[in-house]
Measured scan of single mutants.
Amino acid sequence: SLEEAIRRAEEALRKGQTFEYAGIRVTTQEALEKFRKWAEKQK
């Protein structure tokens, strides 16, 4: 689910890792916010 993907992205960010979902790379807090906004639109 998208909620699960967001949780995994947050977890990866805390560990300093890269999270990738549907071709979207989350490597920074800013990218995480963009990913969250994108995920909201997918619902």
Rank of each mutant, 00 (worst) to 15 (best):
S1R: 14
S1A: 13
S1T: 13
L2Y: 10
L2K: 02
L2H: 05
L2F: 10
L2T: 04
E3M: 11
E3F: 08
E3V: 10
E3Y: 08
E3C: 05
E3G: 08
E3A: 11
E4N: 10
E4S: 09
E4C: 05
E4G: 07
E4T: 09
E4W: 10
E4Y: 06
E4K: 06
E4F: 05
A5H: 06
A5K: 04
A5E: 07
A5Y: 09
A5M: 14
A5S: 05
I6L: 13
I6V: 14
R7Y: 11
R7F: 10
R7G: 09
R7N: 09
R8K: 12
R8V: 07
R8N: 13
R8I: 08
R8G: 10
A9Q: 01
A9Y: 03
A9I: 05
A9W: 03
A9P: 00
E10T: 09
E10W: 05
E10N: 04
E10A: 07
E10L: 05
E11W: 03
E11T: 06
E11V: 07
E11L: 06
A12K: 04
A12P: 00
A12R: 03
A12E: 05
L13H: 03
L13W: 05
L13P: 00
L13C: 04
L13N: 02
R14G: 11
R14L: 12
R14H: 09
R14V: 09
R14Q: 13
K15N: 15
K15P: 01
K15L: 14
K15T: 13
K15M: 14
K15I: 11
K15G: 11
G16M: 03
G16K: 04
G16Q: 05
G16L: 03
G16I: 01
G16A: 04
Q17C: 04
Q17K: 09
T18S: 12
T18G: 08
T18R: 07
T18I: 15
T18E: 14
T18A: 14
F19T: 01
F19E: 02
F19I: 03
F19N: 00
F19M: 03
E20K: 04
E20G: 02
E20Q: 07
Y21P: 01
Y21H: 06
Y21L: 06
Y21Q: 03
Y21F: 12
A22R: 09
G23E: 04
G23C: 02
I24A: 02
I24Y: 11
I24E: 03
I24V: 08
I24W: 15
I24L: 09
I24R: 05
I24S: 02
R25L: 15
R25I: 15
R25V: 15
R25W: 13
R25K: 14
R25G: 05
R25A: 11
R25S: 13
V26K: 00
V26A: 02
V26D: 01
V26I: 15
T27M: 09
T27P: 05
T27S: 14
T27H: 11
T27C: 03
T27V: 08
T28H: 06
T28M: 03
T28S: 13
T28W: 04
T28K: 02
T28G: 06
T28C: 00
T28P: 03
T28N: 14
Q29I: 12
Q29R: 11
Q29V: 13
E30N: 08
E30H: 09
E30T: 09
E30R: 08
E30D: 12
A31P: 00
A31Y: 04
A31K: 06
L32R: 00
E33T: 07
E33V: 08
E33H: 07
E33L: 08
E33Q: 09
K34G: 11
K34L: 14
K34M: 14
F35R: 00
F35M: 05
R36G: 02
R36M: 12
R36W: 05
R36S: 05
K37W: 10
K37L: 13
K37I: 13
K37T: 11
K37R: 11
K37Y: 12
W38Q: 03
W38K: 01
W38L: 04
W38M: 03
W38F: 04
W38S: 01
A39T: 06
A39P: 00
A39H: 04
A39C: 05
E40Q: 09
E40L: 08
E40P: 01
E40R: 06
E40C: 04
E40S: 07
K41G: 15
K41Y: 12
K41E: 15
Q42E: 10
Q42S: 07
Q42Y: 10
Q42M: 13
K43W: 14
K43D: 10
